[in-house]
Structure formats: C-alpha cells, structure tokens
Write a protein that binds this DNA or RNA. Structure first.
Lengths: 126, 126, 126, 126
DNA sequence: GTGGTCTAGACCACA
DNA sequence: GTGGTCTAGACCACG
C-alpha cells in the first residue's frame, strides 16, 4: 500500500484520492481478492492523515463492494470484485463519452483523439 | 440561450453548469463572436437563479477570455475566441488522457474505447 | 479632435477615455488655449457615443479647469491651463511613485526601471 | 497580517485592497511560502469585513497562484511564487510605461522622473 | 473548525 | 437599463 501518494495541496478531497489509489491497487491486481488492507490507524500513521479520513475512504470502498470490513478483524479486498469493476467501468466510459463530446464541440480532430489513446495506451503498459 | 438547462439538485455548482452551458453555446457556434449575452438580471429571471450566481459565471467566462463585460452596456461574446479555445482544448485532452489511463487500469479493452469514440462522434454530428 | 480613439470594449469608462484623450490634446499643445471644442452633439455623432457621456467628460474637464463651457455658445480650452497641468502632474508623479514602490517589493532591479524610462522616453518623442 | 489596512471609504473595492495588501506581504517576504494565511472568518472578524469579501480576495490570489486554498484545512502561501511574481512584474512595468508616457505628454522633465525613482527607491529600502 | 456555494437584498457608477 | 461590489445569513462537504 505504500505506493499510494496523497497530495494534501490538491483540490480533490483526500478521501477521494485514497479511494482512487486503493481502487487502482485492487483493479490492477496489485492487491488480490481476500487480501487484508492495512488497519485504519496504521495507514493513517503511514500517510500522516486523520484516521477519520481513512475511515471515510474505507466506508466508500465498502459501499462500492470493492472491500468488506469485519468489525474487530480489519478490512479485506472483496472475494468477487467483478460487480464493482462493472460499475466503475460504466463511470469511466461515461467520462470518456463526455470528454469526446466536448472535444467534438471544440472542433478537435477525431484523429487527434485516437492518436492520443494510442499514445496513452502504450505509455502505461504494465 | 434557452437551450441551457440547470439542475439545481446536481453536485456540480450552478455557476459551473452555467459556464459549461454558455461555453458550449459559444464553442459550437450557436452564439457568434460579438453577440450580446442576456443581461445578468434577465438570465437570472429566466432560469430562476440568483443574479449573483449568473454574475459569478459571467466573471469566470470573462476571465477565460470567452466573453467580455462592459459595465452599463452588457456582456458580449469575445471577438476572438481562439486563445480561449486553445486553453480549453488542453483541458479536454488532459481529461481524456486521465480517463484512458483509468480504463487501462480497469482492464477495459482498447477496442472498446475506439469503438466508443466512433459511436459518440457519429451520434453528435452537427 | 478626430485623433481620439474610444475603445468601447475597454474596462475603463468611456467618459474617462474621453477625458484622457482630450486632456492629451490640450497638454500636448494640439489644441491651443481659447480654441473651441466640438459641440457635444457633433462629437457624440462622430464617435458614435451617447451625448450624455460626452457631456459627462466635458463636465469633468471643466471641473479640472482645463476647459470652460459657455451655455449656448459651446466649450473652449481654458486660457490658462497651468494650474490644471500642475494638478495633473501631481497625479502622474504619485502613480509613478506607487509603481516604483511595487517594483521595489517585487525585487525588480532599479536599472530595469531607468532603462525602461529611457526607452519609453525616446520612443514617444514628438 | 495586522499590517493590512483597509479603507472602506476608498473607491477601490475592498477585495482589491485586500489582494494588494496580502500580495505585498507575500512578495516582500513578510509571509513565507507555505505559511498559513488567517482563516476567512478570522480575518473577516479582525478587519470588520464580510467573510464573503475576504473569500473573494483569497479566490483572486489563488487564481494568481500566489496562494492555495484547501477546503477544510485553510489557505496557504504557495510554495513557488515565482511564476506569479513574473506575471505581476509584467503588470508593474506596463503601469510604469503608461505613467512615463503621460508624464512625457505633460511636459514633465525627464530628470524629474529619474530623481523621483532614486528618492522612492532609497525611501523604501528594506 | 475550515473553505465553497447560494440566496436575498442593497448601493453604486456607467450609459 | 446595465454590470460591479458589498452585506447578511444560510447550507454543504471536508477534516
């Protein structure tokens, strides 16, 4: 989990940065289903962040069925993350559609978009 | 201007919805350079929104050089909106890059993205 | 008077642009003491500006003793513009002092200022 | 921050006076990069000004990259104020040029200008 | 506690 | 009539 970087200066809420970071870890396979997440206190200490903020991020991820918390035992990556992945995928595609729509209004050439995708896709190959 | 729809229940601030709506009107050519925008009071009345909120949106658009306001005379679409378009284009492409990046993490097939672009592009043809 | 150019898009009020323009004409000697200014209506027509705005500019210049209006006969450059020049000079020097002060705070080198003056001075030689 | 003085009777808007005052504090080094600014409410109370006005000033300074505001945490002087300083420097030099130009029109001797700069420069030595 | 947003209502200068 | 500024008071999300 030490791959997660928080930017306290950023405008996006810290708990959302946390959600995004942990979600990436899970969706990319860095964290396996069933694996234990660090405790709220430990992560709060490691990232120098208010425990309440960690708690809020965990609660949000649990709401999205990406993790499950067992009171007194800790939090764990869900065994089946496919439904959560589906919901997240929907959101990503919706964002893409919106961006494409705005690009269309802004008279950006379609080639520029596909080219951008190619470039970004190669650049982040695992 | 009656094409603009405001959702007061939305999480995105009203003034941002206004900015986006008016920006679309301008970038899409629905409003021509030099054309007068509705007065702050008139638009406030039409959309049932507080005049201060309209003014905040106009101020933001003026900061982006998309419109210019002349006290006592009204607000007008800028004669030359190209520099503003350039800045906006940058933002759109950055959004696209971020969305593609997240799609990559979520193991979405690249074909799905290009297909989505094709579909969205055709669907919004003027 | 046809040298005066008004920018209706500018943020500085039109009547102030008028004042500045006419003041320049007078202080630079383009208009001689005692000379008649164009009538309010004629100037309003020539510049395509509301006559009330011309009137306001003339009133302001009269308040500054740069011109004098004779009801029914028109407006004329004052015979003795020295007192008005003095007051205006004070204002210019105050502006300069303020700008220099801010430049000092911004750590701008003093040489840059004197150099700027030399350049501006030569560039606008009559 | 108690060095800032606001003149509610002045013609220049309060929020601009605030911007200028805080900007001076930052550019002069009285406030260090990363330092926390007083909270909107606290400063509003101290200066006997409406919090909204303080917020408008903070928003403007943030737009100029001189400070950064983090919802829930407060506002802070930017870590790197050099880009903002550059933009501000441009404005100052433009003001100087304009003042020199008007001085030229008003037949003010060039020596008077350089002398004024020398005097002002010495008078505000840190 | 913080900053951000919105509303309601007022006053001003400008045209 | 216009836009610009300010005030007072409210609500919200974040930490």
């Amino acid at each position: 989990m030490s791959n997660i970087r928080i930017d306290v200066k950023s405008r996006t809420p810290i708990f959302e940065q946390l959600c995004a970071g942990i979600r990436e870890e899970i969706l990319s396979g860095a964290m396996a289903p069933g694996e234990a997440l660090p405790s709220v206190r430990a992560l709060a200490c490691e990232l120098a962040i208010n425990p309440n903020t960690i708690q809020k991020a965990y609660a949000e991820l649990e709401r999205q069925k990406l993790i499950s918390s067992a009171p007194g035992r800790g939090s764990f990556v869900s065994d089946d993350i496919r439904p959560a992945m589906g919901a997240f995928e929907e959101k990503i595609l919706a964002d893409l559609r919106a961006a494409v729509h705005r690009a269309r209004l802004c008279s950006i050439a379609k080639e520029k978009l596909t080219e951008l995708i190619d470039k970004e896709w190669e650049g982040t190959k695992p």
